[in-house]
């Protein structure tokens, strides 16, 4: 079977205009604009020139499309769900950071308390 080599892009390296975000997420620009107005999708920076979106916006927009299609949510529901998912993501990252710093119970190879 033929093996195709593929270009690989870091998710984080994406810097997208609104139409590009629409193409990659599969959501119409009007809907993205509305989610953006509600603060559910945040741009990289607010500037005087065209708004650019990064990885977190792409992640949110792709989630939004799935949530909307699979749960038949209206946009406000999508915006609330996105905010909660983002919050859960932050908490999970904190949990992982704390777990990494927590010593494991017993040093490997030592059977404590079993003499």
């Amino acid at each position: 079977m033929q093996i195709e080599a593929s270009e690989v892009l870091w998710f984080e390296q994406h810097v997208l205009t609104l139409p590009e975000l629409a193409e990659l997420s599969g959501l119409p620009t009007a809907m993205l604009q509305e989610l953006f107005d509600w603060g559910a999708i945040t741009p990289l920076e607010h500037g005087t020139h065209e708004i650019r979106f990064g990885a977190s916006a792409l992640r949110s927009a792709r989630s939004a499309r799935r949530l909307q299609a699979d749960f038949e949510l209206d946009l406000q529901g999508v915006a609330v769900a996105l905010r909660l998912l983002e919050r859960i993501g932050e908490l999970e990252a904190q949990l992982q950071a704390l777990r990494a710093r927590l010593p494991q119970q017993a040093p490997a190879g030592l059977e404590l308390g079993r003499s």
């Binding site: 093996i3 195709e4 593929s6 690989v8 870091w10 998710f11 994406h14 990885a55 992982q96």
Partner: peptide, 18 residues
């Protein structure tokens, strides 16, 4: 079959786009 190079520096929770 698609062959993808996972570049060094990919870590937990990271995403790549092909």
């Amino acid at each position: 079959t698609v062959r993808a190079r996972i570049p060094k520096g990919a870590t937990d929770g990271q995403r790549l786009r092909l």
